[in-house]
Computed example of a mutant assay.
Amino acid sequence: MILAKLPFAIHALVETAAALSFIFNPEKQLPGCNTAAKLILRQYGGLLLSTNLICLVILSEPNFTDTTRLLAAALGTYHIWPCYRAYVRISQNIEGTGKGKPVLGGPLLHLIVHLACFGMFIWTSCVS
């Protein structure tokens, strides 16, 4: 069952970078955003960090339970939304930074990473 916990470790790594970006550089996620938008983006970064805490709890548990499967399904379905965001950014040629280097690899890398996370979590939710 160690392999079934791999998505939780990967999620914690991937979302830590994203969370820190939303918290410390919200204007790179939404160029020209006002103070209210920055607060929302920082709040979202905090939410991502809380999902990492859930992942760390799962990783520290010795047993693979039905609760682990349900949390995998929940975290997997979350990844639909970053996939959608990346797809729209690609299809409409929208860059998050407005100028310069794309944030954390840009939308194509985001799509690939979040599709992989989605697939791994859904697989984990189905493991018996």
Rank of each mutant, 00 (worst) to 15 (best):
I112C: 09
W123P: 02
L108I: 14
L115M: 02
G106N: 09
I2Y: 03
I90C: 13
I54A: 15
A17G: 11
I23S: 05
L20S: 06
Q92Y: 08
L59S: 07
G100Q: 01
Y78I: 13
I2E: 06
Y78K: 13
E27S: 08
L39S: 03
C33S: 04
S60M: 05
P62R: 14
A72N: 04
I90F: 10
R69M: 07
K38R: 06
T124P: 01
I40H: 00
C126E: 14
L30H: 09
L70G: 05
N25A: 04
L71F: 07
C83Y: 11
P7L: 05
L13Q: 14
E95I: 00
F121W: 13
L70H: 05
V57R: 13
I58N: 10
G32D: 05
M120L: 11
L13K: 15
A18H: 14
V14I: 15
N93S: 11
T68W: 15
L111P: 02
A72W: 04
G105N: 07
H79M: 12
L108M: 12
E27M: 03
C117I: 14
R69Y: 10
A4R: 10
G98R: 00
T67E: 13
L70M: 03
T65W: 15
F22V: 01
L3H: 12
R89N: 04
S91Y: 07
N34C: 15
M120G: 01
Q92M: 09
K99M: 03
P26S: 00
V103S: 05
S128C: 03
A86E: 05
T51H: 11
G98Q: 02
Y78A: 13
N34K: 12
G76S: 11
Q29Y: 03
I40R: 01
A36F: 04
T97E: 02
S50I: 15
E27D: 14
L30D: 01
T65E: 11
L30I: 04
P31A: 00
H114M: 09
C126T: 14
I80E: 15
Y44N: 03
T97R: 00
T51G: 11
